[in-house]
């Protein structure tokens, strides 16, 4: 029998289990920071409402289950669509008017939106959250010898990797992605080629928001469906985006997973620091490479 205490090194299998658990958290960081990076890269908006939109995704799944009897799998498709539409409405009604202004205005607007959305949900549902069960197909888990891996967590890693790769591929390797990237460089010229740039920007924001909602649905069975779930995670996700480099898709994915690992290791060696370690790394990265690990100086 062994005992974990500060700064003692656990045996290799236990360490491996911790790394795997860290990777699962990293999957959430990656998916959320991906949406933020897409929105910042293409719209130049710092979307502070991202955490609230993640929470909306989880609540949407909860509504679908409790009001319409639709389970996890339909919710996985419907919730991102519904919340994505809400995002499109926000873009059309509000964000559209501030593109010409300093990015700070976008930050303030989305931050205010996040506070309003979270406040309304907290007033209505309280702060401790609503239960949401793991879908029956993914209940239980398997013993890997060094740890008990719940099936649902394995699914989270798999699904988020797939989503991350698909997003990266769309933006970096397809014609649509090329239009998007061109439109951020020179919207007037791209419009002159007959491409509807404002509509493309609207859809991009909707897609970024839908990514947050998808992460929210995937988080619902692990955490409580709680009005606070977004504000708990959003600050960490911003740190991840800054470390990866604002607007860098690959940077968001890689640093999301990597920081999940670092946080996981901290929980073993010095658990008390596990909620600060990411910010320490952020400070160090900003000192050495102010544009972030994968970012380009603008």
């Amino acid at each position: 029998m062994f005992e974990f205490s500060h700064l003692s090194i656990p045996p290799a299998p236990a360490l491996f289990a911790q790394l795997l658990v860290g990777l699962i958290n990293g999957a959430f960081y990656a998916m959320l920071s991906l949406g933020l990076a897409v929105i910042f890269g293409l719209l130049n908006i710092i979307n502070f409402a991202h955490g609230a939109q993640y929470m909306l995704g989880a609540f949407c799944a909860w509504f679908l289950l409790n009001a319409l009897g639709l389970g996890y799998w339909p919710a996985l498709v419907l919730a991102p669509l519904i919340v994505g539409l809400v995002g499109i409405a926000i873009e059309r009604l509000l964000l559209r008017h501030i593109y010409r202004l300093d990015p700070l205005y976008g930050l303030l607007l989305t931050f205010g939106l996040a506070l309003i959305i979270e406040g309304v949900f907290r007033q209505q549902y309280g702060s401790s959250g609503q239960p949401y069960a793991i879908p029956p197909e993914l209940r239980g888990g398997r013993n890997l010898g060094f740890m008990f891996l719940p099936n649902y967590r394995a699914w989270v890693i798999f699904a988020s990797l797939a989503v991350c790769l698909a997003t990266w591929f769309t933006i970096e390797r397809t014609r649509l992605g090329a239009y998007l990237r061109a439109a951020t460089e020179n919207p007037v010229l791209v419009q002159a080629f007959g491409i509807n740039v404002p509509r493309m920007i609207t859809l991009t924001y909707g897609a970024g928001v839908a990514l947050a909602a998808l992460a929210g649905v995937m988080a619902a069975p692990i955490y409580q469906v709680s009005p606070l779930m977004g504000s708990n995670i959003i600050i960490v996700v911003f740190a991840v985006v800054v470390i990866g480099g604002m607007g860098s898709i690959l940077g968001a994915i890689v640093s999301g997973f990597a920081l999940g690992l670092v946080e996981g290791l901290t929980k073993v060696f010095y658990p008390e620091a596990s909620n600060t370690v990411i910010f320490i790394i952020m400070a160090l990265v900003l000192l050495v490479k102010p544009a972030g690990l994968f970012g380009q100086a603008r």
Binding site: I24, Y223, M229, G264, K267, P271, S274, N275
Partner: peptide, 11 residues
Amino acid sequence: RAPLNTSDFSS
């Protein structure tokens, strides 16, 4: 010892 307001306790 886990920090207050931790969301993931798996570790």
